[in-house]
Nucleic acid binder design. Structure first.
Length: 331
DNA sequence: GGACTCACTTGGCGCGACGT
DNA sequence: ACGTCGCGCCAAGTGAGTCC
């Protein structure tokens, strides 16, 4: 659940419920109304768009705010009435929700939109709505208010958090702002699909990025795409085909610099060599069963939250069946 | 009464003007 | 040529005023 909190209980706050990228939005004024929605839907995570800690001493900016500024993301200082009021409300709401066992994180939709390459609501609300749709979100009302749109963005960052695709910008006080990883969103969603065993869909997501990419990213993406293709061949027991693809993966990746978009390419290449050895044994008949543990793992630098890796290919990862529905559910 | 606009809040940064 | 100063912009939110 994402909440675009307003400072005053007299004004609307936006609330977004998200289930596998399908969203429903609500508006609520009082804390009690917001808490009632949380109790009703019992989300895995509540992502609140409001500062959830105050700056030390009388400064206007926290450690995380300064870090964002350094990265070119503009933030508002917290030391005047409206922002203080918002922060105090955020902290109060967080405490109330945590007391009931809900997990709460701080997010910053404006900054997240910058990182995801989306326009901010003030500049282009329609463009923001369309950008969210392109990220795979479904169910955003055409007449959704800017509060609701920011709540959707907050929920999306929460979803990325649950999938291990975010970084925590520390406030130096044990908390901080959860932000999307600063890599191309389609690339990141490909990584997510790959981890979940949707190799065909991962391949499609990466291919979309590849079409517009320049070297060395082209070679890097080609390497990832062929890795996904090789795993599909392994799933079908086609060892020769897999071996062919893995050979190409090694050539593509060895052309790359040691680190790209947060991926340790040297480490990935080492994993691909192990993968190659395993498939060689199968191709030569020295082994009969593929050990899925050799599936190369793609880890992204800066990601703070662990994720689940699915080794075998997902049963629903089929290109011909209900592609639209599947992408909506799994991207 | 709702939707919209405007002015105001703080802090940092970029840019142009000016000084040495 | 380089350093410094000050202005304007902008970030997210409130609240008052205006219009329909």
């Amino acid at each position: 659940m994402g909440i675009d909190l307003s400072a005053s209980e007299r004004r609307d706050s936006g609330v977004c419920l998200m289930d596998n990228l399908r969203v429903r939005t609500f508006r609520a004024k009082r804390d009690e109304e917001i808490i009632a929605l949380v109790r009703k839907f019992r989300p895995k995570l509540v992502a609140i768009d409001a500062p959830l800690s105050l700056p030390l001493s009388n400064e206007g900016l926290r450690q995380c705010d300064r870090e964002l500024l350094k990265r070119g993301v503009r933030v508002f200082p917290v030391n005047f009435r409206a922002m203080k009021q918002l922060t105090e409300r955020g902290i109060r709401l967080k405490a109330l929700l945590e007391a009931e066992g809900f997990k709460v994180i701080e997010v910053f939709p404006g900054g997240a939109q910058d990182v995801l390459g989306l326009p901010r609501k003030r500049n282009n609300l329609a463009g923001l709505r369309e950008g969210l749709r392109q990220l795979g979100l479904r169910g955003v009302k055409p007449d959704a208010t800017h509060d609701e749109i920011d709540a959707v963005t907050a929920a999306y960052v929460g979803w990325l958090y649950l999938n291990g695709l975010v970084e925590l910008i520390s406030d130096g006080q044990g908390g901080g702002i959860v932000m999307p990883l600063p890599y191309p969103p389609k690339f990141v969603s490909g990584v997510s699909l790959y981890r979940k065993g949707f190799y065909w869909h991962a391949h499609e997501a990466w291919e979309e990025v590849w079409r517009e990419a320049d070297e060395p990213y082209r070679s890097f993406l080609k390497g990832l795409i062929q890795t996904a293709a090789a795993l599909i061949q392994c799933d079908r027991g086609k060892w020769k085909g897999a071996l062919n693809l893995i050979g190409r993966v090694q050539r593509y990746l060895s052309r790359c610099p040691p680190k790209l978009w947060g991926v340790d390419v040297v480490n990935l290449l080492a994993q691909v060599r192990t993968f190659h050895k395993e498939v060689s044994k199968l191709a030569e008949g020295r082994k009969t069963q593929f050990n899925w543990r050799v599936k190369p793992r793609i880890t992204l630098e800066g990601a703070t939250v662990p994720f689940k890796e699915r080794l075998r290919r997902s049963k629903t990862d089929l290109p011909e069946r209900q592609k639209g529905v599947m992408l909506a559910n799994h991207v």
